[in-house]
Amino acid sequence: MIHIVIVDDEADTHLLYKLKMKKLFANLGELSLVSFLNGQDCLDYLKKTDTPHVDLILSDINMPGMDGFELLKAVRALNKDIPFYMVSAYESSEFRNKAESLGAQRFISKPVDFGNLGDLLRHDLSLES
């Protein structure tokens, strides 16, 4: 089972990810998708002792409270190995470079190209289609 965590402050985005990921994983195996509206709730989830192994975190950058960069720093302090994709509606070399320097594996621009996202997931998570 692949366990992916989505963090985005827009509830509609969670539904979109759920629908698109279900299609992407139809041929890739079982998917567990957990979503949070803010970084702090995600961090609290990751710190729980009964949280299953997380295969990937996909987080927006601009969120109230803890932004995606702060979440990435906190996740890296907990676990340097969880693949982390940063997602933003603001395509800028500054955001891309900051995400990379903090340890994000990928920087994805919104609107998300789910075909491309599927290719990245297959590659980065070593999934077969």
Score class of each variant (00 low, 15 high):
residue 64 P to W: 09
residue 15 L to V: 14
residue 17 Y to K: 07
residue 38 N to V: 04
residue 119 D to A: 11
residue 73 K to I: 13
residue 124 D to S: 06
residue 35 S to Y: 12
residue 44 D to V: 14
residue 45 Y to N: 05
residue 60 D to Y: 02
residue 123 H to T: 09
residue 64 P to Y: 13
residue 104 A to S: 09
residue 51 T to R: 08
residue 24 L to Y: 04
residue 49 T to Q: 12
residue 37 L to K: 00
residue 95 F to R: 00
residue 31 L to D: 12
residue 60 D to S: 00
residue 37 L to H: 00
residue 17 Y to E: 11
residue 49 T to A: 13
residue 61 I to W: 11
residue 124 D to R: 03
residue 24 L to S: 05
residue 124 D to T: 07
residue 5 V to K: 00
residue 111 P to G: 13
residue 61 I to D: 09
residue 128 E to M: 06
residue 15 L to K: 08
residue 5 V to Y: 00
residue 77 A to E: 15
residue 105 Q to E: 13
residue 39 G to F: 09
residue 94 E to R: 03
residue 83 P to G: 03
residue 46 L to W: 08
residue 19 L to P: 00
residue 106 R to L: 06
residue 15 L to A: 14
residue 90 Y to I: 07
residue 2 I to K: 10
residue 14 H to Q: 12
residue 32 S to V: 10
residue 36 F to I: 07
residue 101 S to I: 09
residue 103 G to N: 10
residue 118 G to A: 07
residue 71 L to C: 03
residue 112 V to Y: 06
residue 6 I to W: 01
residue 94 E to W: 01
residue 125 L to I: 08
residue 82 I to R: 01
residue 80 K to Y: 09
residue 54 V to K: 00
residue 26 A to I: 02
residue 7 V to R: 00
residue 119 D to R: 04
residue 116 N to V: 14
residue 13 T to L: 11
residue 103 G to K: 14
residue 72 L to G: 01
residue 3 H to F: 09
residue 55 D to P: 00
residue 44 D to C: 07
residue 32 S to R: 11
residue 113 D to I: 15
residue 2 I to V: 07
residue 15 L to T: 15
residue 60 D to Q: 00
residue 42 C to V: 01
residue 6 I to G: 02
residue 62 N to Y: 06
